[in-house]
Computed example of a mutant assay.
Amino acid sequence: MKLYIIRHCEADGQAPNASLTLAGREASRRLAKFLSDLNIELVISSPFTRAVHTIQSFVQHNNVPFKLDDRLKERVLSSEDIPDWYEKLQQTYIEKDLNFTGGESSNEATKRINELVEELKQSNYKSVAIVTHGNIMSLLLNQSQPHFGFDEWKQLSNPDVFEIDFGNEQTVVNRIWR
């Protein structure tokens, strides 16, 4: 099975209902064209508005089945305001069980995304796209590429697309968005 992991396009904030910016809407149209030759059989998205709007054009123009899944939503680092959130986030890539007040550790977030991926690997689908957020994307990629961490997360674009090919003997990961 091939799994396409898509990070949402540029948005005007981090809230669950944050909309795409003008540049984000334009990028979602380019993304729809980019994805149309990949024979994607199913799209599963984070319920956050920016993720849904990122893939909406592709789904509508290609008549691809679409589902929402809470396991793809962005990780909450803390329910409290953390002025040094950037440093705290970096720390969670090293200490994967580190948990801030009201937040989710890297291991907890990885567990939920892996549950979905394992379900998909057991399905009859040959090609599925999931639409998520940068932190969740990086944690998933870290499962196949242990070097993929905080520095690689910083280099992700909006949007971004990686292909994971769960082939016969080994898993192959490629960044395919240019």
Score class of each variant (00 low, 15 high):
F48Y: 15
T49Y: 11
A51Y: 12
A51F: 07
A51D: 13
V52E: 10
V52W: 13
T54L: 14
Q56R: 12
Q56A: 12
Q56N: 15
Q56L: 14
S57T: 14
Q60G: 05
Q60W: 06
H61P: 02
H61K: 11
N63V: 10
V64P: 09
V64G: 03
F66T: 01
F66A: 12
R71H: 12
K73Y: 13
E74G: 11
V76A: 02
V76R: 04
S78L: 07
S79Y: 00
S79E: 04
E80Q: 13
E80G: 08
E80S: 08
I82H: 05
P83D: 01
P83V: 04
D84L: 05
D84Y: 10
W85C: 08
E87T: 03
E87Q: 01
L89K: 13
Q90G: 14
Q90N: 15
Q91S: 07
T92C: 00
T92P: 03
I94Y: 03
I94H: 06
E95R: 08
K96I: 06
N99T: 06
F100S: 08
F100G: 07
T101W: 03
G102F: 02
S105F: 05
N107K: 00
N107W: 00
E108C: 00
E108D: 09
E108A: 13
T110G: 10
K111V: 05
K111Y: 15
R112S: 10
I113R: 13
N114Q: 08
N114E: 10
V117Y: 07
V117Q: 01
V117T: 09
E119G: 06
Q122W: 15
S123N: 10
S123G: 13
S123C: 15
N124R: 07
K126L: 00
S127L: 01
S127M: 06
V128C: 00
V128A: 07
A129E: 01
I130H: 10
I130Q: 06
I130P: 07
V131A: 14
G134S: 02
G134T: 01
I136H: 07
S138G: 09
L140P: 07
N142H: 06
N142R: 13
G149P: 02
F150H: 14
F150G: 04
D151N: 13
E152P: 02
E152F: 01
